[in-house]
């Protein structure tokens, strides 16, 4: 029992993002309103971003902004600096998330203009299925 508790405490970041991902995933497949589905997609993306950023953490390390002259003379100890690559990946992923949300909202507005509703079953009814 102690081993399981130690395992959970050592990897609690994964529990957080799996919980967030489950909330987003349920909203995406369980809800009937299209705007709620879009909010679920955003929560899902937040979970993925959280996972990548937490993959770059090193305990007790500093931010990846260095002192230029000190580094040119003495070099740098890698263990002291946080891994910068997940930060770069998530910086681009956040902007992609914003543009995905923008395009999705545009399509939702177009659907509302066409059918007058955003409920999935009502749209399917108007389509004649």
């Amino acid at each position: 029992m102690d081993q399981i508790a130690a395992l959970i405490i050592a990897k609690y970041n994964y529990w957080i993002y799996v919980t967030l991902m489950m909330i987003g995933f349920y909203a995406m497949i369980g809800k009937r309103n299209l705007v709620k589905k879009l909010i679920g997609l955003n929560i899902f993306q937040t979970a993925i971003i959280l996972m990548f950023v937490s993959a770059g953490v090193k305990k007790g390390a500093k931010i990846p902004i260095l002192d230029k002259h000190h580094v040119m003379e003495h070099g740098v100890n890698v263990v002291d600096i946080v891994n910068p690559v997940p930060h770069v990946l998530m910086l681009t992923a956040i902007v992609v998330a914003v543009s995905v949300t923008g395009v999705a909202l545009a399509i939702l507005l177009r659907i509302y203009r066409e059918y007058g509703t955003l409920e999935e079953d009502e749209i399917l009814e108007k389509l004649g299925r």
Binding site: V95, V98, S99, L109
Partner: peptide
């Protein structure tokens, strides 16, 4: 690019095109 596109996204979505 990010400035003009984020502003134009808001303007287009907010004014229904």
């Amino acid at each position: 690019a990010v400035m003009s596109i984020s502003a134009s996204l808001f303007w287009l979505l907010g004014s229904n095109g």
